[in-house]
Design a protein around this nucleic acid. Structure first.
Lengths: 189, 189
DNA sequence: CGCCTTACCTAGCGATCACTAGGTAACGAG
DNA sequence: CTCGTTACCTAGTGATCGCTAGGTAAGGCG
């Protein structure tokens, strides 16, 4: 009665459940045993695919980055032609709308970002790099609209992350995109 | 060579270390043993003062609330006389300035707020209540400035929390209060 | 000084942790 | 149909988890 999947499918299934479990309990808080049972297998079976708990976490992050690469590239076009304010608000709204469709991912990143404040957390370096990159991208995007794009980028990112977290806290009972649009309209000159 | 403290002092010392430890690793991630060693005692000794890990967490939250009560009351005066915009910005700046002096507390609440998204987390109910209360207080405060104070309160709180988290992520290398003031000036009509 | 409360200890409980060694059986290739 | 690969298992490892029972000694009070 045991089901045997090929490497690729099984890994994808595990990574998918890992997003939920780590998002709920954090890296320190979840156990490989728990995650394995959610995938209807044993912890030893799971570790056959991902050698250690740390490797699993990094695989989750890598996997997500690979999946998101195209979407991000589409949202941040290379030829950074100067745009008008309305177009930028549309780009930001698209980012938030995309996140609104992936609450488990928003939750995962919210959880890991706080956990990874600790320098010895396995995802610490990842989030330092990731956040710096995000600030740079937003600063480039917002450059034409502000004389201090770095500061504006920080504020925009902070408001976005803060709103998304609050959206989770309130059980997604308010319209994230609409609220964001109102915020962005106030925040961006 | 063992040091024996009176109940009150020992409890205070433990709660103080607990703020740091839980803020670093989360409720699920820290161990009573680790915390006890940081206080130069055994886990059994610690559990003599706080019966269980859950009780300890709730004691931390209670203790903080008790300490903060006066400060909060001072910042949100009861007689909610209508004020002008400048005065409100001053109140918000005072809140952020107070938090800027307590980074371990900001970190603790950031960690627990995300962890407590899970309905079975021991602080879940606490944070649901706390956040609702915060939104109500801010909505009352901002009432005179907006026709939709609830929505504005949400956005202000989100921006504040988001900025504080980013401030921790960037190792407090930017001026939190100044950045907040710029944000608030843009956000509040 | 003597006594009683109690802060704190040692020792140990069963459960669970991440992880390993070695075996079994399902699948794809030939 | 056969055979090699490998997905996945059982059965453990020592470490650590939260927590308890029962003892020891430090301090305040008379």
């Amino acid at each position: 009665m045991r089901t045997r999947m090929n490497r690729e499918d099984r890994r994808a299934a595990i990574l998918d459940s890992a997003i939920a479990v780590i998002g709920e309990r954090g890296f320190h808080g979840f156990s490989i045993r728990d995650l394995a049972m959610r995938c209807a297998m044993t912890d030893a079976g799971l570790l056959h695919h991902f050698g250690s708990k740390t490797d699993l976490l990094l695989a989750v992050l890598d996997h997500r980055d690979a999946q998101d690469e195209d979407a991000i590239a589409a949202l941040f076009p290379r030829e950074a032609a100067p745009r008008d304010r309305a177009e930028m608000l549309r780009v930001l709204a698209a980012i938030v709308a995309r996140n609104a469709e992936r609450p488990e991912l928003v939750r995962l990143y919210a959880m890991l970002r706080v956990e990874a404040l600790a320098a010895d957390h396995p995802a610490h370096a990842y989030f330092v790099t990731r956040d710096r990159l995000a600030r740079r991208r937003f600063a480039e995007l917002l450059g034409p609209l502000s004389e201090t794009p770095e500061r504006l980028a920080r504020q925009v990112l902070a408001a976005m992350d803060g709103l998304e977290l609050q959206w989770l806290l309130e059980d997604r009972t308010f319209d994230l995109v609409a609220t964001w649009n109102e915020t962005a309209d106030r925040l961006i000159p």
